[in-house]
């Protein structure tokens, strides 16, 4: 079945880059800006969100025939809240230090509109396998965005990466980057960078079209 395989690949890639939930759709920022002040925190938060997204997508896609249309949003929210509770308790038991660091922001994954959006837009109207692939792609894209944000803020704000010193003792850390304003500024600049890349690609495609694709 080469066609479905290509489809699945498309769904996966779309979440990673073209429709990246953070950089392109600007969704699910509420919990992510607060905890991305270091790469480790960003990875933990991203991992938790990924688990919740993939697990609820699988469940919603397999239960979609039995969920009445009128109460579907509440059902999705309760499914998501259940998985978040599982994640919260599991993290508390397995890695107490990270759980302490992330604090109240783990329960807030429930209100991440990206997760609810995927259930409504995709999982509720496609097969279990396709919904899983889509959720994996979106979760990967989310993790990538969180990780890049966390890395930039840790490197500039503390001069460290995963706790390793990068610049030596003369480096004056940009404290603002690990404080709240740094989160807004970094995300704003990253968005700018992404739209610049997109614009460049479009201009390149235009120029290719003008020359009639002769160079190809």
């Amino acid at each position: 079945m080469p066609k479905t395989q290509a489809d699945a690949y498309q769904e996966f890639i779309k979440g990673l880059w073209r429709d990246n939930p953070v950089f392109v759709q600007v969704l699910g920022m509420c919990p992510m800006l607060a905890v991305t002040n270091s790469a480790v925190n960003a990875l933990a938060m991203g991992g938790a969100t990924c688990f919740v997204l993939v697990a609820s997508s699988i469940l919603v896609a397999s239960l979609k025939q039995w969920i009445p249309k009128q109460v579907r949003i509440s059902t999705y929210i309760i499914i998501i809240a259940t998985f978040v509770t599982v994640t919260d308790l599991a993290l508390q038991a397995l890695v107490p230090e990270i759980h302490k660091e992330l604090g109240a922001f783990i329960p807030l994954i429930v209100a991440n509109c990206m997760i609810l959006g995927r259930q409504e837009a995709f999982a509720s109207r496609s097969s279990v396998s396709l919904a899983t692939v889509d959720a994996l792609g979106m979760a990967g894209g989310f993790l990538f965005a969180l990780f890049s944000l966390g890395s930039v803020r840790e490197i500039l704000g503390e001069g460290k990466f995963f706790g390793m010193d990068l610049f030596g003792p003369e480096f004056e850390p940009w404290v603002i980057m690990i404080l709240p304003p740094g989160g807004f500024l970094t995300l704003g600049l990253l968005l700018l960078f992404f739209s610049w890349v997109k614009e460049r690609k479009e201009r390149l495609a235009e120029r290719l079209a003008e020359t009639g694709g002769a160079s190809l």
Partner: peptide, 21 residues
């Protein structure tokens, strides 16, 4: 033109947040 939309809004929010600090 590239900065219009969410990018400039986030940077405005960052400056606002700095002021609130």
């Amino acid at each position: 033109r590239l900065m219009r939309g969410t990018a400039i809004n986030l940077i405005i929010a960052g400056i606002l947040s700095m002021a609130f600090m």
